[in-house]
């Protein structure tokens, strides 16, 4: 579990800010973060932000995925073992 691998075929395991998280296969990273009640980023004036438009336009859902910063998580499907870091 801790290594972020799935327990069954319908589920996918990822690591969000160091914690293992199970999500339905086909979920986007943005949806996974919402389910985990985790903000994606901290805005310029310090506000937590989460996905808003759900279609890759607003850029509020940016987070670091597999080491690459500023990725739009609403446009990315979760993969087994994916590592997601949000701004905190």
């Amino acid at each position: 579990m801790r290594d972020g691998t799935a327990v069954n075929a319908a589920m996918i395991g990822l690591i969000v800010n160091g914690e293992a998280l199970q999500v339905r296969r086909g979920s986007t990273v943005a949806a996974a973060l919402l389910n985990a009640a985790t903000a994606c980023r901290i805005s310029e004036s310090g506000e937590p932000r989460t996905a808003v438009c759900g279609m890759g336009v607003c850029f509020e859902c940016r987070a670091t995925v597999d080491g690459i910063a500023q990725q739009r998580t609403c446009q990315m499907e979760c993969r087994d073992g994916m590592v997601v870091e949000t701004q905190r």
Binding site: V23, R49, A51, C58, C74
Partner: peptide, 21 residues
């Protein structure tokens, strides 16, 4: 309107379709 939990209407629907419970 920038609070977490505030979404676009179509945006929320899209996020639900992509796994938001």
């Amino acid at each position: 309107w920038t609070l977490p939990g505030v979404f676009g209407a179509g945006g929320l629907q899209a996020l639900v379709r992509s796994g938001y419970d």
